[in-house]
Amino acid sequence: MRYLGFRLLQSIFLLLGVSLLSFIFVEAAPGNYFDEMRLNPRITNETVAQLRQDYGLNQTLPIRYVHWLSSVSRGELGFSFAYDSPVAPLLWSRARNTLLLTGSSIAMAWLVALPWGILSAAKRKAWIDHASSVIMAILLAAPDVLLALGLLLFAARTRLLPVGGLASLATKSGMWPEVRDVAVHLFGPVLILVLISLPTLVRHVRAAMIEAIDSPCVHAARAHGIPRSRILCRHALPLALNPLISLFALSLGSLLSASLLVEVVMSWPGLGPLLLDAILARDVYVIIGSVMIASLFLIGGMLLGDVLLFLVDPRIRTEGLA
């Protein structure tokens, strides 16, 4: 519990540091949300100055940071100039869609990568391992945008998949038709995200399993006549778990940030398009809010990874108690 409390305190300070750095970097970027208004001859300089004053942009950075912190304490995460509303509800409605997409894709990617990597390691240097290496190399080399555009082309030509969005306009009402419609829309972006993350995961699982299979205790288990399937599941896999848990924690940490590009290309109404629009329009509090939520997930993912390692590895547990 002491360890968990210490990690939580550390996370709060880390989040404060991230927010401060985000403020400084956004301030350092040239221009602001009202600069484009100056180009419009029908809006006077006085109106722009009044708007800057209303939204507090003429105040110094420390004062704006303190105001932002007080809005965080109210659960608002600042105010969006473009949407004229608090940032938190805006981000939450989009973050739900992003979480649905990335959560499904990470679960699918791990479900595929784990048995694939184990099989590849168990059949090392056999044709199945060589074929897997070639497939992974092709997927790793293919640009993410190309994969997404290829799937869009396939969807547009064959009409087997929707070309974008989260739901169809003409969906029958009722729970199952709606779930089915979302699942059909989800298939394309999830497939692309799985294909993007699969090479990294499979290579890591294969490498960790090979290291475990080559370890003396697995060698000894083979010498004692333990069946191959049990050696893989009971001896090698637990030994390979530590690096895989760290990788899983990293993938949880990137839940909100991993899919930005795919969301923009596949028109998924998640955080990606919102963040892109906010960056182009210099809607600073939306940018900072998105960065903060992504950081929160990253720190939460790392914390969960540490807790999982603590639970899974008896050596870490023993060190922790000592």
Partner: peptide
């Protein structure tokens, strides 16, 4: 195989830490 058993030099490595 169970009728022939092997004891390794490196017992620290030969026994699963898990």
């Amino acid at each position: 195989c169970p009728r022939i058993q092997l004891v390794f030099q490196d017992s620290a490595g030969a026994l699963s830490p898990r």
